Amino acid sequence: MYAFWDANNPNSFAAYTTSHLVALALLAAVVVLLFVCRRQLRQSSAKRRTVSLIIVSILVLSEVTLNVWYVQQSMYSIRHSLPLELCSISLYLCVAMLLLRSRFLFQIVYFIGIGGALQALLTPVLGYAYPHYRFLEFFAAHIAIIAAVLYMVWAENMRPTFRSILFTMGFLNLLLLIVIPVNTYTGANYMFLARKPATSSLLDYLGPYPWYLLSMEAAAFVLFIFLYLPFAVSASGKQKKLSLP
């Protein structure tokens, strides 16, 4: 138990080891399960409510226990512990989105939730390997973020639009007005706006600081277009069917 919770655990995380691959396989299983069960969820408000509350519980439990861990291990710091990472912001928005069944929040979280959480899962910035608490919390929270978004698509039948991309880009740039001053005055690196992470990530291919910040904008826009494509193709197909004599 001590090793499971201890912040000084020497068992450090390594990407694409067996435990990492198992976590990614769990993500795939969750996605497939939600897709397979989508019709059952649409037909039953009780089932939707149960699945929604399960995802909310995982998200809330992850965030609450993380902050307890920070405090109990004397690690809480405004430089590292504020919920200003993109995935932390997505987590809070996901909880509100699920509880309120908010189409407005969905328009943002669809893009930043999937985009940010998937990047985090594929290239984790994580210092603890399985079975440490931080390993389990990290993957549970990020998988739940993706599950929350796909639940809204497949169970609540919500769809993003092209305008959602522009709205999300505006939201991200408004976040910069908050996060950059926090980074400047505290020495933090929230959203990796002050420097690149020490571990390998997509940012390694986007140029040196500060130019990679502009590259991040372009990469985010391209990623959002990619995430929107399935809905654009689907909408185009429906329009063609309606136009047939």
Rank of each mutant, 00 (worst) to 15 (best):
V125C: 07
S74D: 04
F111Q: 09
Y185H: 14
R42I: 02
R195N: 13
T161G: 14
L99R: 04
S236P: 02
F35K: 15
V64R: 09
L91E: 04
Y76N: 03
A220P: 03
L105P: 07
L177A: 15
A155K: 00
S81R: 09
P181H: 12
A141S: 13
A188E: 02
F192S: 12
V64W: 11
L166S: 08
L202S: 13
N11V: 07
E217N: 06
R49T: 08
N11Q: 04
G113F: 01
L202R: 13
N157A: 14
K196H: 02
V56N: 10
Y209D: 10
Q72K: 12
H20K: 11
T161A: 14
D204L: 02
A25T: 13
V233E: 00
I143G: 09
I58F: 09
T161I: 01
L244N: 09
T168L: 00
F221C: 06
T168K: 05
L227H: 08
R195V: 03
A144Y: 06
L61M: 04
K241N: 15
F162P: 08
M152D: 13
V109W: 11
T184L: 05
L26V: 15
V179I: 06
G170D: 11
A194Q: 10
S57Y: 00
S52M: 03
A25C: 04
P83C: 13
L203R: 10
H142L: 04
L100Y: 03
V60G: 09
G127S: 13
V71R: 12
S44G: 08
D204C: 01
I165S: 03
L229A: 14
L172W: 07
F226V: 12
Y185N: 10
L193N: 08
R163M: 09
M152H: 00
V22P: 04
E217H: 00
V22I: 15
N9P: 07
S45T: 07
Y128L: 00
L84G: 07
I78T: 14
R48Q: 15
C87E: 12
M152Q: 11
Q72R: 13
V51T: 11
V30I: 13
M75V: 07
G187H: 00
F224Y: 08
N11S: 04
I225Y: 05
V125M: 08
S57R: 06
P160H: 02
